[in-house]
Amino acid sequence: FNPNDTLLIAMYDGVIVGTAGLHVESAVRRRHVASLGMGVADSFSGRGVGTALMVELMNLADNWLNLLRLELYVYADNAAAIHLYNKFGFEIEGTHRAHSLRNGVFIDTYSMARFHPKQPQVPLMSR
């Protein structure tokens, strides 16, 4: 058990059809950040499971944990997940080429992030 982790399970007729997790960073300088992970059974895609899980995670992040930044990785070819994350304010920040191995093939992933909607936008630091 890690007190910095929240795990949610979506069930239908006693069967797990989706899971989601929010993992708050433990390092002092990154406690304002959490990473997000989610999975929905293919047979339940497009039926609101992902949206319901995201609503609960965003409520927790914004209203209870006061997190500034949420981060995630998503396969670049997962249009449904990217659409869901965009709906909740996530934006693509970068592409990781050949980041993951899936079925024997290296695929790209996107790094996406969302800032707390009631916090002022954080400016980019000049280099």
Rank of each mutant, 00 (worst) to 15 (best):
D42H: 07
S43I: 00
L57K: 01
L84S: 07
N78W: 10
Y73P: 00
L36D: 01
A98R: 13
G94L: 07
L101G: 02
A80V: 01
I92K: 02
G37P: 09
T51M: 06
I82L: 09
A52N: 10
S45W: 13
V33D: 07
R102Y: 14
S100D: 14
N63Q: 14
T51V: 12
F44V: 01
I92E: 03
S43E: 12
A52K: 05
I82E: 12
V40D: 04
I92Q: 03
V49C: 06
H96G: 01
N86Y: 15
R102V: 03
R97N: 08
D42V: 07
N63P: 02
Y75G: 00
G94D: 06
G39E: 12
N78R: 08
G50N: 05
E93Y: 06
R102A: 02
Y85P: 00
L53M: 12
L70T: 06
M38V: 02
L68A: 14
W64F: 12
R47Y: 14
N63H: 13
N86W: 13
A79K: 05
F44G: 02
G39V: 09
M54C: 07
V33E: 12
G46L: 03
L72I: 04
A52R: 08
S100F: 15
N59Q: 10
S35N: 09
L101N: 02
